[in-house]
């Protein structure tokens, strides 16, 4: 932690940095391989890892390792190199804030006036797993975005005691096929629209107190394609604030079963049906919770 205070720490998605022609990507590509490619050779080799550089783009070090001691050693060496470089050489002469305006990122479409759900996933307990294996405790998360008009469409025209309705089919189907996926051990693609066999979220007003409407959420999902699938039931609660016209709470727990594997989700030896759980809840305003959905391209937002 102390060592990290000497740096400005940042995190980013590496495929984009390594492959696109945006200004920030070109900046990264200038120096990323100076310490050697971190994950083998060849055009498809990923550049995943930890890197150090000067703002001006001088390479200071790189490593891709889970051992914190190796990363700390790389950081110390990078700091030593940094101190040897003159200030005018290590900083950018042009204001990098201006460059930010030229960079096209999904995060710029963050729905500040809409709703963002954090979707957490983890395997449910089962017998036969090794407690010392990281995969037993693996968990993942992603963000599901909804625009302001989509949130408005989630509500009926009038909210009275015992009012019942279903969330719009298109929004529920997008949510389940892109976000209720088996990403527990690693990233995976969503499902094609035709893979969704069953997807619904039902709402029922259970209480109205002043400007807060309590809504019970129940639902189900079943989707499968190419030998993989997820099915389960949903239960949750939402609190809609009629004064602020926003949800103060929106939480859904999904308990179900997953099966099959995809190229990168590390299920190659775990394809049988097994229990999986999800918790969807409102994301905070913390900067680290404003990351775009992994499959944002599938949203079709312009």
């Amino acid at each position: 932690m102390k060592l990290l205070e000497s740096f400005v720490p940042c995190a980013d998605e590496v495929w984009r940095l390594h492959n696109l022609r945006e200004p920030d990507c070109l900046h990264f590509q200038k120096w990323c391989d100076e310490g050697g490619t971190l994950n083998g050779d060849g055009r498809t080799a990923t550049r995943q890892g930890t890197y150090c550089c000067t703002p001006s783009g001088q390479f200071l070090g790189s490593a891709n390792h889970r051992d914190p001691r190796r990363i700390a050693a790389m950081l110390k060496e990078a700091l030593r190199k940094w101190k040897e470089i003159k200030k005018e050489d290590r900083l950018l002469k042009e204001d990098p804030v201006k460059t930010w305006e030229q960079i096209d990122r999904s995060e710029k479409k963050y729905p500040a006036d809409g709703m963002v759900l954090r979707v957490n996933s983890r395997d449910m307990p089962r017998t036969g797993l090794d407690p010392n294996d990281w995969r037993t405790h693996a968990w993942n998360f992603d963000y599901a975005w909804f625009k302001k008009d989509e949130v408005a469409r989630m509500l009926p025209k009038t909210l009275g005691k015992k009012t019942e309705w279903r969330l719009p089919d298109d929004l529920v189907r997008r949510l389940v096929r892109i976000h209720l996926v088996d990403n527990v051990r690693g990233q995976t693609g969503g499902y094609r629209p035709e893979a969704v066999e069953d997807a619904e979220i039902n709402c029922e007003v259970t209480r109205i107190k002043k400007n807060i409407v309590t809504i019970k959420l129940t639902g189900k999902v079943k989707q499968q394609q190419d030998g993989r699938g997820v099915e389960g039931t949903m239960l949750g609660e939402a609190l809609y604030n009629t004064k602020d016209e926003k949800f103060d709470k929106f939480e859904i727990v999904v308990l179900g079963t997953r099966w099959g594997a995809t190229q990168y989700n590390r299920r190659e030896d775990d394809r049988e049906r097994s229990p999986i759980g999800y918790v969807l809840h409102l994301a905070s305003d913390h900067p680290t919770e404003k990351i775009a959905p992994a499959e944002f391209g599938s949203y079709g937002w312009r």
Partner: peptide, 20 residues
């Protein structure tokens, strides 16, 4: 980093490390 005169430490993964 340019404003604070510090080196950049970048953690880069396939899929944003703070997302999926």
């Amino acid at each position: 980093a340019n404003k604070e005169d510090k080196p950049v430490m970048l953690f880069a993964m396939n899929g944003h490390p703070f997302g999926c």
